[in-house]
Simulated assay, not measured.
Amino acid sequence: MYYIDVLVIGGVGGVGSIAIQLAKLAGLTVISTASRQESIDWCKKLGSDYVINHYKPFVEQLEEINLKGVDYIFCLNNTDQHWDTITTSINPQGKICSIVETEEKHDLNLLKSKSAAFVWEFMFTRAMYQTKDMQEQHKLLSALSELIDQKKLVTTLTEVLTLINADNLKKAHIMVESGKMIGKVVVEYFE
């Protein structure tokens, strides 16, 4: 039997946390990246079958779990930093998706011999360009909401700061910018 796998780069963030769960619901083998123990624990709690360290080369770590590469890669953290290891880790005819813009030019020829695809995902594309399938965004978010209501997915909310004010906004930014935030922070209620 052939198993389809996905590597989620940045599994502890808000998007990664949901992506791990959706991939498990779809029946995929999920490998996510994390480096700190609490981040590793979070990814496993959400359903990651394996967690590898994003500061180390992926290929060697994938080989340690008996994978020569992966079928899908979802890059949610620093496409520039991970480009070489992404192109090396993708299986022939695999698909790579990133939501993180690049500052560097990258060699797509690295994917040619593998017939691998690279695509961008941007949440606002449909609305910005008034695409024919613009209503799909509503359907996707409604389906996600139903999965949360049915307790098939857990939310990514991990921190709540009460009262929207300058101090709490600063605290929230510090938490997010630290690079150590797990899940999402919400600042709620005006004074």
Score class of each variant (00 low, 15 high):
residue 52 I to R: 08
residue 105 K to L: 11
residue 96 I to N: 03
residue 42 W to L: 06
residue 131 T to D: 06
residue 8 V to K: 06
residue 12 V to A: 09
residue 90 I to L: 06
residue 42 W to E: 08
residue 36 R to F: 05
residue 10 G to V: 04
residue 183 G to Y: 05
residue 87 T to I: 11
residue 191 E to Q: 11
residue 25 L to D: 03
residue 104 E to R: 13
residue 98 S to I: 04
residue 185 V to L: 01
residue 116 A to D: 02
residue 102 T to D: 03
residue 124 F to V: 01
residue 71 D to H: 15
residue 10 G to L: 04
residue 102 T to G: 10
residue 154 V to L: 09
residue 7 L to S: 04
residue 151 K to R: 13
residue 154 V to C: 07
residue 44 K to Y: 02
residue 180 K to N: 15
residue 162 T to P: 00
residue 31 I to W: 07
residue 140 L to A: 11
residue 128 M to F: 13
residue 19 A to V: 00
residue 136 E to Q: 14
residue 187 V to N: 05
residue 167 D to H: 08
residue 183 G to W: 03
residue 58 F to C: 09
residue 35 S to L: 03
residue 72 Y to M: 12
residue 54 H to R: 10
residue 133 D to M: 01
residue 133 D to G: 11
residue 181 M to Y: 01
residue 159 E to R: 12
residue 52 I to N: 09
residue 91 N to W: 00
residue 165 N to Y: 01
residue 142 S to Q: 14
residue 164 I to E: 02
residue 119 V to H: 12
residue 110 L to A: 15
residue 44 K to L: 08
residue 177 E to P: 00
residue 168 N to C: 05
residue 176 V to A: 14
residue 103 E to Q: 14
residue 111 L to D: 02
residue 144 L to F: 15
residue 64 E to C: 03
residue 167 D to F: 00
residue 27 G to N: 11
residue 84 D to H: 07
residue 102 T to Q: 14
residue 153 L to D: 08
residue 54 H to P: 02
residue 108 L to D: 04
residue 151 K to Q: 15
residue 185 V to A: 01
residue 48 S to D: 12
residue 7 L to D: 07
residue 178 S to G: 10
residue 17 S to I: 02
residue 169 L to H: 09
residue 125 T to H: 13
residue 101 E to M: 08
residue 46 L to Q: 13
residue 105 K to M: 07
residue 85 T to A: 13
residue 176 V to M: 15
residue 42 W to R: 10
residue 29 T to K: 14
residue 105 K to A: 12
residue 103 E to L: 13
residue 67 L to Y: 13
residue 39 S to Y: 00
residue 33 T to R: 06
residue 90 I to T: 08
residue 149 D to F: 09
residue 66 N to R: 15
residue 99 I to Y: 08
residue 174 I to D: 14
residue 89 S to Q: 10
residue 120 W to R: 11
residue 70 V to D: 06
residue 67 L to R: 15
residue 89 S to I: 04
residue 87 T to K: 05
residue 59 V to A: 14
residue 71 D to F: 06
residue 187 V to D: 01
residue 118 F to H: 00
residue 35 S to W: 04
residue 19 A to K: 07
residue 65 I to Y: 07
residue 75 C to A: 13
residue 112 K to W: 14
residue 170 K to G: 01
residue 168 N to M: 08
residue 49 D to V: 00
residue 50 Y to E: 06
residue 149 D to Y: 13
residue 132 K to P: 06
residue 109 N to K: 13
residue 72 Y to V: 06
residue 50 Y to P: 08
residue 19 A to M: 07
residue 81 Q to N: 10
residue 135 Q to V: 10
residue 23 A to D: 05
residue 101 E to N: 14
residue 104 E to N: 14
residue 169 L to K: 03
residue 48 S to H: 01
residue 86 I to C: 14
residue 150 Q to W: 00
residue 110 L to S: 11
residue 151 K to T: 09
residue 117 A to Y: 07
residue 98 S to C: 07
residue 138 H to V: 12
residue 24 K to S: 04
residue 11 G to P: 04
residue 113 S to H: 12
residue 101 E to Y: 08
residue 22 L to C: 11
residue 188 E to F: 00
residue 81 Q to P: 00
residue 161 L to P: 10
residue 114 K to Q: 09
residue 44 K to I: 10
residue 174 I to G: 00
residue 65 I to T: 10
residue 26 A to Y: 02
residue 187 V to T: 02
residue 46 L to C: 08
residue 137 Q to D: 12
residue 160 V to C: 09
residue 154 V to R: 13
residue 31 I to V: 15
